[in-house]
């Protein structure tokens, strides 16, 4: 059975667990770094990125999550999670995990009153995907190895780089589990190749 951990320090982690379970995989909430050994893939959920970073530091998650990624296990960041994965934020290299070669702008669409829902085509994942953007970031630019999966209004809102996946919106807030299913498939494939 494929087990997907959802980083449960703050934010909408239970919704992600529900979404993972809807795809048929097992979802667990990860609150302690030791739990990283028990999972095949990790989701970093939406929430407040500054709050999550503080708790990541406090509980020594930063390096263990980087190592988790380096070992070839997939990581999926949504909204705040995307910010945590990025290698450049708001023009500064003062980054969090920095494992994905993407430049991110925080609160890029504006304040809460500018938050919105829109239909997206996510390349190779889903057409007409109902995406919920909440004080969302977008990706200004991606490195050579990263692939753009979706744009909204010209801005990059989903990208993949090998076994790293990131999106600006909140797939866990709807009943559309297609992007979660895409991630679960990435994890299943990595599990097979890591077992070889």
């Amino acid at each position: 059975m494929t087990t997907i951990g959802v980083l449960g320090l703050q934010g909408a982690f239970r919704e992600h667990v529900r979404s993972v379970e809807a795809t048929g995989a097992k979802g667990v909430v990860v609150k302690k770094k030791e739990q990283l050994d028990e999972i095949d893939g990790l989701i970093i959920p939406g929430g407040e990125s500054t709050t999550m970073r503080r708790l990541i530091d406090k509980y020594d998650f930063l390096e263990p999550i980087r190592q988790f990624g380096k070992s070839g296990k997939p990581i999926f960041g949504t909204c705040a999670g995307l910010i945590l994965l990025a290698s450049e934020i708001d023009g500064s290299y003062d980054v969090h995990l920095g494992v994905m070669d993407i430049k991110v702008r925080r609160n890029a669409f504006g304040r809460q009153r500018d938050s919105f829902e829109a239909s997206l085509n996510i390349e190779g994942v889903a057409d007409d995907f109902n995406a919920v953007f909440i004080r969302a970031p977008y990706v200004e630019d991606v490195g050579e190895d990263a692939k753009v999966l979706a744009r909204y209004d010209g801005h990059i809102v989903a990208a993949q780089q090998g076994h790293y996946l990131a999106c600006s919106f909140h797939p866990e807030l709807t009943d559309d589990h297609r992007i979660t299913a895409h991630f679960v498939k990435m994890v299943e494939e990595s599990k097979k190749s890591l077992a070889l």
Binding site: G11, F13, E48, R135
Partner: peptide
């Protein structure tokens, strides 16, 4: 969804 979702992101905080 956008208004309630904003509060969802605050959970545990």
């Amino acid at each position: 969804r956008v208004k309630r979702g904003m509060a969802e992101m605050q959970k545990g905080g």
